[in-house]
């Protein structure tokens, strides 16, 4: 058992998988020589040579290339530096990656992983701070995962690489330095589509994704001081969603707060709220409360950005509203 940073856990997973399977290659901007702007791919080029490539700044083509490389025997892992650049990849995701398994009547699989990182909080501005989770989770044929702990980062990246379908692997710039226990001897692979109960509780269910899980845990701590027992569920997989975990928790607490760092309108929290309404309506003792980014561009200055991106206080307030 070792304590390692989230970025190191991802690096470990890449090394383990690339050593195991030489059809895996890793490419993206600044990922080989420099080791990635968040140092996730550090040292991989030395170990794996040409299978780790720096690329031109051509996200749309790189994504499209990953799609067909995956269809023809390779297992590409593409790094898109910021989730804000996902729109550049979107055609390859919406019109290529997501369709072929079905449209070609299952003649091909698509073992392709697109790693990217989103989220705000550190002044990266309107073009480098977004969470576009809903945009990719919307697309049938893609899987979308967003681990929070270093251990999950490793297990889920391994699972994503081994998955026969395209997986969007969402990281968060504020998670890379998060430390956690990782059992290097454990060669288990995560299961995509399985949520994690981050904190057990009785009174209200808080469903959260990515870094918002940490904020939800803070909120739960604050609520505990008020005698409210909040259950925090780390969804881990945005698509497919662990419906059973959600309905089981809501059946227990009868109150739900759904949290995602992306925009509120047409956002991921809207899907979560609708999911709960579809599948757990009669268990609800109050309307589902949503916590999401304000529907506006993400500003640069700290006091402005803080207003747009949700945090623990917003989650706690939403829980109080649900329980009112």
């Amino acid at each position: 058992m070792a304590t390692m940073r989230y970025a190191e856990a991802l690096n470990l997973a890449l090394r383990e998988e690339m050593a195991r399977d030489d059809t895996i290659f890793v490419f993206g901007e600044d990922i080989a020589t420099y080791g990635g702007v968040f140092k996730v791919t550090q040292g991989l080029a030395e170990q794996f040579g040409d299978r780790v490539r720096d690329t031109p700044i051509s996200e749309q083509t790189l994504t499209a290339m990953a799609v067909t490389a995956a269809m023809t025997g390779s297992r590409p892992v593409l790094e898109i530096m910021y989730a804000d650049f996902l729109p550049l990849s979107l055609d390859a995701l919406v019109n290529q990656a997501s369709i072929y398994h079905y449209i070609w009547n299952e003649q091909v699989t698509m073992p392709f992983v697109l790693r990217t990182q989103g989220g705000g909080g550190v002044g990266t501005g309107a073009q480098h701070a977004k969470s576009l989770d809903a945009m990719v989770a919307h697309i049938p044929g893609l899987k979308v995962v967003a681990p929070v702990t270093p251990a999950d980062a490793r297990f889920l990246l391994k699972a994503a690489i081994r998955d026969p379908h395209p997986v969007i692997f969402l990281e968060h710039k504020l998670l890379y330095n998060l430390r956690g226990e990782v059992d290097e001897a454990d060669d288990a692979v995560g299961e995509i589509g399985r949520a994690r109960v981050a904190r057990e509780g009785r009174d209200v269910t808080i469903l959260a994704t990515s870094r918002m899980v940490l904020e939800a845990e803070k909120a739960a701590e604050e609520l505990a001081g008020e005698g409210v027992s909040a259950e925090v569920i780390d969804l881990r997989s945005l698509r497919p969603l662990d419906l059973d975990a959600i309905t089981a928790s809501v059946a227990k607490t009868n109150h739900a707060v759904v949290v995602n760092e992306g925009w509120r309108f047409c956002g991921y929290t809207a899907e979560l709220a609708a999911t709960i309404m579809d599948h757990a309506f009669d268990d609800l003792d109050a309307p589902v409360e949503r916590v999401a980014a304000r529907d506006m561009p993400i500003p640069y200055a700290e006091p402005l950005e803080r207003e747009v991106i949700p945090g623990a206080a917003d989650i706690a307030a939403a829980a109080r509203r649900a329980l009112a």
């Binding site: 499209a64 290339m65 990953a66 067909t68 490389a69 023809t72 390859a92």
Partner: peptide
């Protein structure tokens, strides 16, 4: 165009 290019990379 990128479709064939990606296959070529794989090869």
């Amino acid at each position: 165009i990128p479709a064939a290019t990606g296959m070529a990379l794989s090869m």
